[in-house]
Write a protein that binds this DNA or RNA. Structure first.
Length: 206
DNA sequence: GCCAACGTTGGC
DNA sequence: GCCAACGTTGGC
Protein backbone atom coordinates (compact mmCIF):
# COMPACT_ATOMS: atom_id res chain seq x y z
CA UNK A 1 0.00 0.00 0.00
CA UNK A 2 1.15 3.34 -0.93
CA UNK A 3 2.91 5.49 1.50
CA UNK A 4 4.62 8.35 -0.01
CA UNK A 5 8.23 8.50 -0.31
CA UNK A 6 9.63 11.88 -0.37
CA UNK A 7 7.29 14.66 -0.87
CA UNK A 8 7.91 15.86 -4.19
CA UNK A 9 7.07 19.18 -5.38
CA UNK A 10 3.63 20.29 -5.40
CA UNK A 11 0.56 18.81 -6.62
CA UNK A 12 0.83 19.74 -10.07
CA UNK A 13 -2.30 21.44 -11.09
CA UNK A 14 -4.41 20.91 -14.02
CA UNK A 15 -2.53 21.58 -17.12
CA UNK A 16 0.72 21.99 -15.45
CA UNK A 17 1.58 18.54 -16.37
CA UNK A 18 2.94 17.01 -19.39
CA UNK A 19 5.65 19.12 -20.75
CA UNK A 20 5.37 17.87 -24.21
CA UNK A 21 7.35 14.88 -24.99
CA UNK A 22 7.89 14.24 -21.39
CA UNK A 23 5.06 11.94 -20.89
CA UNK A 24 4.89 8.80 -22.74
CA UNK A 25 8.29 7.75 -23.57
CA UNK A 26 10.55 6.62 -20.95
CA UNK A 27 13.56 8.27 -22.36
CA UNK A 28 16.25 6.03 -23.48
CA UNK A 29 17.69 4.06 -20.69
CA UNK A 30 20.71 5.43 -19.10
CA UNK A 31 20.32 8.99 -20.13
CA UNK A 32 19.79 10.11 -16.60
CA UNK A 33 22.83 8.43 -15.31
CA UNK A 34 25.68 10.53 -14.27
CA UNK A 35 28.27 9.09 -16.47
CA UNK A 36 27.86 8.74 -20.12
CA UNK A 37 28.67 5.28 -21.10
CA UNK A 38 30.31 4.27 -24.25
CA UNK A 39 28.03 2.47 -26.67
CA UNK A 40 29.67 -0.84 -26.04
CA UNK A 41 29.23 -0.40 -22.37
CA UNK A 42 25.79 0.94 -22.53
CA UNK A 43 23.66 -2.04 -22.01
CA UNK A 44 24.81 -4.46 -19.46
CA UNK A 45 27.72 -3.13 -17.62
CA UNK A 46 28.51 -1.22 -14.55
CA UNK A 47 25.52 -0.02 -12.60
CA UNK A 48 24.66 3.62 -12.28
CA UNK A 49 24.27 5.28 -8.91
CA UNK A 50 21.50 7.34 -7.41
CA UNK A 51 20.22 8.81 -4.20
CA UNK A 52 16.61 8.38 -3.09
CA UNK A 53 15.11 10.55 -0.42
CA UNK A 54 12.42 9.50 1.94
CA UNK A 55 11.06 10.98 5.09
CA UNK A 56 11.53 8.31 7.70
CA UNK A 57 8.14 9.16 9.20
CA UNK A 58 6.65 8.12 5.90
CA UNK A 59 8.94 5.34 4.87
CA UNK A 60 12.25 4.55 6.50
CA UNK A 61 15.05 2.18 5.78
CA UNK A 62 13.71 -0.13 8.47
CA UNK A 63 10.34 -0.09 6.80
CA UNK A 64 12.07 -1.30 3.68
CA UNK A 65 13.92 -3.94 5.68
CA UNK A 66 10.65 -5.30 7.02
CA UNK A 67 8.86 -5.53 3.69
CA UNK A 68 8.38 -8.93 2.11
CA UNK A 69 11.46 -9.61 0.08
CA UNK A 70 12.77 -6.31 1.47
CA UNK A 71 11.38 -4.90 -1.73
CA UNK A 72 9.05 -2.00 -2.26
CA UNK A 73 7.81 0.23 -5.05
CA UNK A 74 9.29 3.71 -4.85
CA UNK A 75 6.01 5.46 -5.42
CA UNK A 76 4.80 8.96 -4.89
CA UNK A 77 7.38 10.83 -6.91
CA UNK A 78 5.63 13.90 -8.28
CA UNK A 79 8.33 15.97 -9.79
CA UNK A 80 9.16 15.81 -13.46
CA UNK A 81 12.84 16.12 -12.85
CA UNK A 82 12.85 13.33 -10.35
CA UNK A 83 10.64 11.21 -12.57
CA UNK A 84 12.87 11.65 -15.56
CA UNK A 85 15.85 10.56 -13.57
CA UNK A 86 13.95 7.58 -12.26
CA UNK A 87 13.03 6.57 -15.78
CA UNK A 88 16.69 6.27 -16.57
CA UNK A 89 17.21 3.66 -13.89
CA UNK A 90 18.02 0.09 -14.82
CA UNK A 91 17.80 -3.14 -12.92
CA UNK A 92 20.85 -3.51 -10.68
CA UNK A 93 21.49 0.20 -10.41
CA UNK A 94 22.47 1.12 -6.88
CA UNK A 95 20.78 3.75 -4.73
CA UNK A 96 21.69 5.50 -1.53
CA UNK A 97 18.73 5.61 0.82
CA UNK A 98 18.53 9.06 2.37
CA UNK A 99 16.41 10.15 5.31
CA UNK A 100 15.13 13.67 4.83
CA UNK A 101 13.14 16.09 6.91
CA UNK A 102 14.12 14.54 10.18
CA UNK A 103 16.33 15.31 13.16
CA UNK A 104 19.32 13.63 11.68
CA UNK A 105 19.10 13.85 7.90
CA UNK A 106 21.60 11.67 6.10
CA UNK A 107 22.40 8.54 4.18
CA UNK A 108 21.35 5.39 5.98
CA UNK A 109 21.54 2.51 3.54
CA UNK A 110 21.80 1.06 0.10
CA UNK A 111 19.10 -0.40 -2.08
CA UNK A 112 19.04 -1.54 -5.65
CA UNK A 113 16.65 -1.31 -8.53
CA UNK A 114 14.88 -4.60 -9.13
CA UNK A 115 12.20 -3.36 -11.50
CA UNK A 116 12.46 -0.50 -13.92
CA UNK A 117 10.01 2.34 -14.23
CA UNK A 118 6.35 1.40 -14.51
CA UNK A 119 3.21 3.42 -13.86
CA UNK A 120 2.81 4.69 -10.32
CA UNK A 121 -0.32 3.06 -8.98
CA UNK A 122 -0.81 5.71 -6.31
CA UNK A 123 -1.33 8.29 -9.02
CA UNK A 124 -4.08 6.15 -10.52
CA UNK A 125 -5.86 5.36 -7.29
CA UNK A 126 -8.54 7.89 -6.45
CA UNK A 127 -8.36 6.92 -2.81
CA UNK A 128 -4.66 7.58 -2.55
CA UNK A 129 -3.46 10.89 -1.18
CA UNK A 130 -1.08 10.89 -4.10
CA UNK A 131 -3.84 10.46 -6.65
CA UNK A 132 -3.41 12.56 -9.75
CA UNK A 133 -6.52 12.75 -11.89
CA UNK A 134 -4.46 13.61 -14.91
CA UNK A 135 -2.72 10.29 -14.90
CA UNK A 136 -4.52 7.48 -16.69
CA UNK A 137 -3.69 3.83 -17.02
CA UNK A 138 -3.34 4.22 -20.76
CA UNK A 139 -1.30 7.34 -20.42
CA UNK A 140 0.35 7.47 -17.06
CA UNK A 141 2.24 10.55 -16.02
CA UNK A 142 3.98 9.24 -12.95
CA UNK A 143 6.22 6.24 -12.57
CA UNK A 144 7.85 4.18 -9.89
CA UNK A 145 10.60 1.61 -9.69
CA UNK A 146 10.91 -1.29 -7.29
CA UNK A 147 13.85 -1.23 -4.96
CA UNK A 148 15.27 -3.91 -2.76
CA UNK A 149 17.35 -3.40 0.34
CA UNK A 150 21.00 -4.22 -0.12
CA UNK A 151 22.11 -3.27 3.37
CA UNK A 152 21.92 -0.65 6.00
CA UNK A 153 25.07 1.33 6.50
CA UNK A 154 27.18 0.77 9.55
CA UNK A 155 26.29 4.26 10.64
CA UNK A 156 24.17 7.12 9.41
CA UNK A 157 26.25 9.52 7.39
CA UNK A 158 24.79 12.91 8.25
CA UNK A 159 24.14 15.57 5.70
CA UNK A 160 26.20 17.86 7.86
CA UNK A 161 29.18 15.61 7.35
CA UNK A 162 28.64 15.36 3.62
CA UNK A 163 28.67 19.12 3.47
CA UNK A 164 32.12 19.19 4.96
CA UNK A 165 33.36 17.63 1.76
CA UNK A 166 31.46 19.90 -0.57
CA UNK A 167 34.62 21.35 -1.98
CA UNK A 168 36.50 18.11 -1.84
CA UNK A 169 35.48 14.60 -2.72
CA UNK A 170 31.82 15.50 -2.92
CA UNK A 171 32.21 18.57 -5.02
CA UNK A 172 29.26 18.94 -7.32
CA UNK A 173 27.11 16.42 -5.52
CA UNK A 174 23.52 17.13 -6.43
CA UNK A 175 22.36 16.72 -2.85
CA UNK A 176 24.48 19.67 -1.86
CA UNK A 177 23.33 21.96 -4.62
CA UNK A 178 19.79 20.94 -5.45
CA UNK A 179 18.47 20.21 -2.05
CA UNK A 180 14.95 19.61 -3.15
CA UNK A 181 15.38 16.98 -5.77
CA UNK A 182 14.19 13.68 -4.32
CA UNK A 183 15.72 11.36 -6.89
CA UNK A 184 19.24 12.24 -7.85
CA UNK A 185 22.18 10.86 -9.74
CA UNK A 186 25.35 10.17 -7.81
CA UNK A 187 28.75 9.67 -9.40
CA UNK A 188 30.76 6.57 -8.72
CA UNK A 189 33.35 8.67 -7.01
CA UNK A 190 30.76 10.21 -4.70
CA UNK A 191 29.28 6.79 -4.08
CA UNK A 192 32.58 5.23 -3.12
CA UNK A 193 33.48 8.12 -0.90
CA UNK A 194 30.20 8.07 1.01
CA UNK A 195 30.43 4.34 1.58
CA UNK A 196 33.93 4.88 2.80
CA UNK A 197 32.70 7.51 5.26
CA UNK A 198 30.10 5.08 6.49
CA UNK A 199 32.84 2.73 7.62
CA UNK A 200 34.61 5.38 9.65
CA UNK A 201 33.93 6.32 13.17
CA UNK A 202 31.52 9.18 13.43
CA UNK A 203 33.39 12.41 13.61
CA UNK A 204 31.91 15.19 15.54
CA UNK A 205 31.16 18.31 13.66
CA UNK A 206 33.51 21.15 14.03
C1' DG B 1 9.92 32.53 -23.59
C1' DC B 2 10.91 35.63 -19.69
C1' DC B 3 10.37 36.29 -15.07
C1' DA B 4 7.66 37.61 -10.76
C1' DA B 5 4.69 35.43 -7.68
C1' DC B 6 3.59 31.42 -5.48
C1' DG B 7 3.98 27.12 -3.03
C1' DT B 8 6.74 23.42 -1.24
C1' DT B 9 10.86 21.13 0.47
C1' DG B 10 13.59 20.28 3.98
C1' DG B 11 17.48 21.95 7.01
C1' DC B 12 17.87 24.11 11.12
C1' DG C 1 7.92 26.30 13.43
C1' DC C 2 10.67 29.36 10.61
C1' DC C 3 12.17 30.52 6.38
C1' DA C 4 15.77 30.14 2.44
C1' DA C 5 16.15 27.87 -1.64
C1' DC C 6 14.19 26.61 -5.55
C1' DG C 7 10.78 24.30 -8.75
C1' DT C 8 6.48 25.52 -10.91
C1' DT C 9 2.92 28.48 -12.60
C1' DG C 10 0.98 31.83 -15.31
C1' DG C 11 0.77 36.71 -16.95
C1' DC C 12 2.55 39.21 -20.35
Amino acid sequence: MPKRKGRDAADISAEAAVPKGATDKPQSRRTAATEVKSPTEAKSSAPSYYLLKSEPDEFSISDLASRPGQTEPWDGVRSYQARNIMQGMCVADQCLFYHSNTKQPGVVGICEVVREAYPDSTALDSKSPKFDPKSHPEKPIWFMVDVKLVRELRRLVPLQELKQHSSGELEGMVLLSKGRLSVQPVTKQQWDFILHLAEEEPKEAS
